[in-house]
Amino acid sequence: MEGLSYARMPRVKIRELKDDYCKFELRDTDASMANALRRVMIAEVPTIAIDLVEIEVNSSVLIDEFIAHRLGLIPLTSERAMSMRFSRDCDACDGDGQCEFCSVEFHLRVKCMTDNTLDVTSKDLYSSDHTVVPVDFDANTTTTTDDNNNSRANSGIIIVKLRRGQELRLRAIARKGIGKDHAKWSPAATVSFMYQPEIHINDDLMETLTLQEKREWVESSPTHVFEIDPVTQQVTVVDAEAYTYDDEVIKKAEAMGKPGLVDIIAKQDSFIFTVETTGSIKASQLVLNAIEILKQKLDAVRLSEDTVEADDQFGELGAHMRGG
């Protein structure tokens, strides 16, 4: 078509990055794009989760359905998910778990032989594919404080507990899916964004307050946003992003008879994203996958050729009727 374009060129700045956590700034775009990304990250980025369970023996205290549900909720490493097929689109199999393109098989065989309670955990699940395994939470938390959770360390996610003589034997099939289908497929633990706040203190008006009043005003904020400089006794903004748009400081200023003491603007084109994943994919990968999925979705809503052709004919007819 024409060379004209109304596309924006957003800017990104990563602030903090860990395997399952990412905080970044997104600028020069609008809330619709930020919200679309958030929605896609939560509900439309695919992962792999257990979807079919065939129970051979279950003499545990939990019923079969209960165990199947718990198995479904275990996060599995899903780097492969983007290139995998949905089993409903897979023509190489009938989705019975025999196909490498759309499913991964798991086995679990545990029997308690001692008088101690036996914990059956995600570590007891044996995968047919070494790239798709239950997420190991201890592998990437070795540097954090191990003091009080030493007993829990390296234990995996508990599925069920067995007493002497009880047994659990099953076969499970994991498939690719999206959070819109069932929340177990959502890779996101938290995805949120906030408008970047811009806080301006009216210094002249602030100087009309006594130190006591300043303290009272600073204290009125439920979050730690402002501070009084111990030397100059001036009120300064220490952490603008701690502000939760609660309007408490504005109400306080009005109650003190000083309206306009502070001016707080939510910048409409700057967002601060917080992304946390369940561990199934890396947080940075989640953002990239979300962009890719959104692109695919947009591509799918393009008008098809026959729609355009049909309109061309009808359009001419329409022009005729209008006396063109």
Partner: peptide, 10 residues
């Protein structure tokens, strides 16, 4: 186009 740009930027 915007998403392409966003992807390269990220």
């Amino acid at each position: 186009k915007e998403l392409d740009h966003l992807k390269t930027a990220f």
